[in-house]
C-alpha cells in the first residue's frame, strides 16, 4: 500500500534556492523550477501522507478558511505525482 511520502533521493540532485523558488537538476539533466507552494510541499513531504501534507499546507496558509480541502488535496496529488515522475520523491510502501 502506497502510504507515506519520502524524499529519500532528493538531496542527491543538485539544487539551488533562488528567491521563493527551488531549482532542481533532475536525473535526465532537465531543470525543474518549484514555485513557492511546490517548494513548501517538497520540503515538508517527508514521512507525510497526502492527507497530512494537505493539512500541513492549509495550516501554513493565511486565509485558510477560504480553502476547499478537497481541491487542495487534488492539487497536491498532481504536484506529488509530478515530483514522483521526475524522481524527486518516492512513496514508502507500508
Amino acid at each position: 500500500m502506497r502510504e507515506k511520502l519520502i524524499k529519500n533521493i532528493s538531496l542527491k540532485f543538485p539544487h539551488q534556492v533562488h528567491e521563493d523558488n527551488l531549482i532542481i537538476l533532475g536525473r535526465d539533466g532537465e531543470l525543474s523550477v518549484l514555485n513557492n507552494t511546490s517548494k513548501f510541499l517538497y520540503e515538508n513531504c517527508d514521512n507525510e501522507s497526502i492527507h497530512s501534507l494537505t493539512r500541513c499546507l492549509i495550516d501554513a496558509c493565511i486565509e485558510k478558511e477560504d480553502l476547499d480541502e478537497k481541491m487542495v488535496e487534488m492539487d497536491i496529488v498532481k504536484a506529488i505525482t509530478e515530483f514522483e515522475k521526475r524522481g524527486f520523491i518516492a512513496f514508502q510502501n507500508k
Partner: peptide
C-alpha cells in the same frame, strides 16, 4: 560544478 544545478548549461 559537480554539485551545481547549472552544470549542464
Amino acid at each position: 560544478c559537480a554539485s551545481c544545478v547549472w552544470q549542464n548549461v
